[in-house]
Design a protein around this nucleic acid. Structure first.
Lengths: 111, 111
DNA sequence: TTTTTATGACGTATATTTGCGTCATAAAAA
DNA sequence: TTTTTATGACGCAAATATACGTCATAAAAA
């Protein structure tokens, strides 16, 4: 890729794609699910849950933090992570809006 | 990455992540949307619609074909593409099921 | 039959993602 | 105060993704 052409697309498509990308790895899906259940926990709890090294999990956490889906609050040595409810709602909404646009009645050849 | 660790996760998370990955680029979102509107069209129609070279669009089409979201039927020189309604429904469902699992009431610190 | 058209296949370059080890640091515990 | 613990930052290697040009091919058109 000589230039990232991503920004040549419609803003809505761009942000929807960005959110989908955050969901495009099972580790990140597992992290979000885990945080949804746990409400709040420290990095170590998540690390133990996943079949990946602490370093790698940390990187996935960083990606989720970067798109705003989770929040990390440092408290002493530990960092408490939790979902960012507002942003998760935005995620749900953006994806739903997009998926709802897709018509599945099918074309003539697919009926 | 020495080894792809993707397969170490729950099957549902894996397939959901795979589908999200297909949606993780605005070009692919645009293609799916375009096909949903057009019902059926040839490669060239899609190429004209996107700010990318024919080669690149073709590659995105291939990716969408690989996950089964679209179908391409060759007819003479041309190839007709359309959505695969069943697979798109699967996509919608898998993602909805996952998103519905995410609780957005928030933890104590986020209320 | 020759030429044009529409595509897919292939190769290439760069960028990004994935995964991990190691080091630094700051708070807690001993 | 020293040591342990929990993390984040940094750097590295391999795998993928992104983007495109060029070539080959087969059907249509001239």
């Amino acid at each position: 890729m000589v230039l990232a052409k991503t920004e040549l697309f419609d803003n809505e498509l761009q942000s929807c794609a960005e959110l989908c990308k955050a969901l495009a790895h099972p580790a990140r899906l597992a992290i979000l699910k885990f945080l949804s259940d746990a409400k709040m926990c420290i990095t170590g709890d998540i690390t133990e849950e996943l079949p990946l090294s602490r370093t790698t999990v940390n990187q996935h956490l960083k990606e989720l933090k970067d798109v705003g889906l989770i929040v990390g609050v440092t408290e002493g040595v530990k960092t408490n992570y939790c979902l960012n409810p507002k942003r998760v709602e935005e995620l749900k909404n953006a994806i739903r809006v997009y998926l709802d646009m897709l018509d599945t009645t099918g074309c003539n050849c697919c009926k």
